[in-house]
Simulated scan of single mutants.
Amino acid sequence: MSRKTAQRKHDLTADSAQKELVKLIQSFSYGHHLHTVFSDFVEMSALAISNSADRAQFEAREKRYLEIAGKYKREEVERFPQMLGLLIESFEQRVGVIRKETAVGLPVSGGLTDVLGETYMMLGLGNDRAGQFFTPYSVSRMMSMMLIGDVGAEVERRGFLRVHEPACGAGGMVIAAADSILAAGHNFQQVMHATCIDIDPCCVHMTYVQLSLLHIPATIVHGNALSMEVWGTWYTPAHILGGWTFKLRRRLEADLLRATVAAEREPEVEQAGTSPAWSEGPVLAETEPSDLTVLEREPLQVATPTSTASRDAMSLADLFEQSLSSGARERTVFDTIDQLTLF
């Protein structure tokens, strides 16, 4: 999408809060480059949100926040919380439309949108030489409606949906997935978890801010999905408060257990030369492992899977989560209690 096209779209579709947000960002143009102002705005917003929930990274991120604020005059610093307030207001207006539609029994028409991504492109901040173009939200939503599938069946079978975005940009595709899940009659805040990856720190911060404001459980990774390098991680408040670290670990362990048992049974099937009764349905459909069975497995089997079946069962998001936890000490119940003292 060119800047002129983004400008025309902004003029037609932006709400009042989004228009005021753009004007406030542009007010810095007399003394600062707009890209620097926008990047600092989303990073400071991300740091403020993270420090309200993620105690483990508080000190380093508070230091970074003060470092960014030191670049601006006092009256300029005061505009940043105003800009965050306008972004929150923009999302509140859109969520308000959805609530009205739901209250009168109308189908949800897709009230959410990628506010920061649209603003970024409208201001002409995209890097054309690096091939950085954000997908228009209407296209993202169309793709999500085509790919999301039967939400109810997946939630019934596995408890929740996982969304993986290896080049997340501003998080528009994940927001579109949440929009589609909501249109299907489910609360995306409860039945979806997203793992988002991007090499650009500004994109990481945009995604983190927007998914946090929508209370979407997510892990946002500043890293390279091709080389599997990781430079930083951001956990949304919904991820921390909802205990999603435990939920994801338990699901991964269950997936690895299914894959391992299935791999062990394959030689028996080949040797017998007959198809067992369970091969006609889902693997372990009648022998689903209990939570107790899963939790009693050694953590090493999850952290360093060696069998082909185990590796095949792990998704890109699982591999990134493995790289994040490798070398770090295991979180204890005392860490969890300490984390919750903020609330």
Rank of each mutant, 00 (worst) to 15 (best):
P267A: 05
V302D: 06
G185D: 06
T306F: 03
R311T: 01
G243T: 08
S140L: 12
H239D: 12
L340P: 06
N51V: 04
A218P: 06
V221G: 03
P166W: 10
N224T: 08
I199F: 00
P289H: 01
C202V: 06
I148R: 14
E330W: 07
G223I: 05
H32I: 07
Q57N: 13
T260M: 04
A53P: 01
L256A: 06
I216P: 01
A285C: 05
G159A: 11
G232K: 03
G172A: 10
K4N: 02
A48M: 11
Y208S: 01
E67G: 05
P81C: 14
C203Q: 00
G131V: 08
Q189C: 09
C203S: 04
P136K: 14
A69V: 11
M83T: 13
R265Y: 04
Q189E: 11
S315A: 00
L248A: 02
L21F: 12
T287V: 07
G169T: 10
A303M: 09
S138M: 15
R79F: 13
V104P: 02
P136Q: 14
V151F: 13
G70N: 15
V204Q: 00
L147Q: 15
H222L: 12
Y120S: 06
V302T: 12
T119Q: 06
S180C: 12
P166N: 07
G243C: 08
V42N: 07
A69L: 15
M173N: 14
M206L: 00
H33V: 10
A170L: 08
N187R: 06
